[in-house]
Measured scan of single mutants.
Amino acid sequence: MAAGGDHGSPDSYRSPLASRYASPEMCFVFSDRYKFRTWRQLWLWLAEAEQTLGLPITDEQIQEMKSNLENIDFKMAAEEEKRLRHDVMAHVHTFGHCCPKAAGIIHLGATSCYVGDNTDLIILRNALDLLLPKLARVISRLADFAKERASLPTLGFTHFQPAQLTTVGKRCCLWIQDLCMDLQNLKRVRDDLRFRGVKGTTGTQASFLQLFEGDDHKVEQLDKMVTEKAGFKRAFIITGQTYTRKVDIEVLSVLASLGASVHKICTDIRLLANLKEMEEPFEKQQIGSSAMPYKRNPMRSERCCSLARHLMTLVMDPLQTASVQWFERTLDDSANRRICLAEAFLTADTILNTLQNISEGLVVYPKVIERRIRQELPFMATENIIMAMVKAGGSRQDCHEKIRVLSQQAASVVKQEGGDNDLIERIQVDAYFSPIHSQLDHLLDPSSFTGRASQQVQRFLEEEVYPLLKPYESVMKVKAELCL
Rank of each mutant, 00 (worst) to 15 (best):
G4A: 15
S9M: 15
S9N: 15
P10F: 13
R14C: 15
R14M: 15
S15E: 10
L17S: 10
L17M: 15
Y21T: 00
A22T: 13
S23H: 13
S31L: 02
D32T: 12
R33S: 07
Y34F: 08
F36P: 01
R37A: 11
R37I: 15
T38L: 07
Q41Y: 12
L42Y: 02
L44W: 06
L44K: 06
E48F: 03
A49K: 00
E50R: 00
Q51A: 07
L55Y: 06
P56E: 11
T58W: 08
T58N: 10
T58I: 13
Q61W: 05
I62A: 05
Q63D: 04
Q63L: 10
S67C: 12
S67N: 13
N68S: 10
E70P: 11
A78P: 12
E81K: 00
K82W: 11
L84K: 11
H86R: 00
M89C: 14
A90E: 02
H91Y: 06
H93Q: 13
F95Y: 11
G96P: 03
G96D: 08
H97A: 12
P100W: 07
P100D: 11
P100T: 10
I105Y: 08
I105E: 06
H107N: 00
L108K: 01
L108V: 09
L108Y: 10
T111D: 00
Y114L: 03
V115L: 13
G116I: 05
L121A: 11
L121C: 13
L124H: 12
L124M: 13
N126R: 08
N126G: 13
L128M: 11
L130Q: 07
L132T: 12
L132W: 14
L132R: 13
K134N: 14
K134V: 08
V138Y: 11
R141M: 13
R141N: 11
D144E: 14
K147H: 09
K147W: 11
R149I: 03
F157P: 00
F157A: 10
H159M: 03
Q161D: 00
Q164S: 10
T166Q: 09
T167F: 01
V168Q: 04
K170E: 00
R171Q: 00
C173Q: 04
L174V: 14
W175T: 02
I176H: 02
D178N: 12
L183R: 03
K187G: 13
V189N: 10
R190D: 06
R196H: 14
G197N: 00
G203D: 00
T204G: 14
S207L: 02
Q210L: 07
Q210Y: 00
Q210H: 11
F212S: 05
E213K: 15
G214T: 09
H217Q: 12
H217T: 12
K218D: 05
K218Y: 15
E220Q: 09
M225F: 11
V226C: 09
F232V: 03
T239N: 03
G240C: 06
Q241D: 00
T242R: 00
Y243P: 09
Y243S: 15
V247P: 02
D248L: 04
D248M: 00
D248R: 04
S253A: 12
V254D: 08
L258K: 06
G259R: 00
A260K: 03
S261P: 04
I265Q: 15
T267H: 08
D268A: 08
R270V: 04
L275C: 08
K276N: 06
K276D: 08
E277C: 05
E280L: 00
K284W: 15
G288P: 00
S290F: 02
K295D: 00
S301T: 10
C305D: 05
S306P: 02
A308Q: 03
L311W: 01
L311E: 01
V315I: 11
M316R: 04
M316V: 10
L319C: 00
Q320R: 03
T321M: 13
T321I: 09
S323R: 03
W326A: 05
F327S: 06
F327G: 09
E328S: 02
S334E: 01
N336H: 02
R338V: 01
I339R: 03
C340K: 03
C340T: 13
E343S: 10
E343Y: 07
T347G: 11
T347P: 10
T350L: 13
L355V: 11
N357G: 13
S359L: 12
L362D: 03
V363C: 05
P366T: 10
V368Y: 05
I369R: 04
E370G: 08
Q375R: 04
L377C: 04
M380F: 09
E383N: 03
I385V: 11
A388Q: 05
A388G: 08
V390H: 07
G394T: 10
R396K: 07
C399H: 11
C399D: 06
V405W: 14
A411Q: 15
V413L: 08
V414P: 05
K415H: 04
G419W: 07
G419V: 07
G419M: 15
D420M: 05
I427H: 05
Q428E: 10
S438E: 14
S438M: 12
Q439C: 14
L443V: 09
L444R: 02
T450A: 07
Q455T: 13
Q456M: 08
Q456S: 07
Q456I: 07
V457W: 01
R459W: 10
F460S: 03
F460C: 06
L461M: 11
E462R: 08
V465D: 02
V465G: 03
V465E: 03
P467L: 12
L468H: 14
K470P: 06
E473K: 15
V475E: 14
V475S: 14
V478G: 14
E481I: 08
L484T: 15
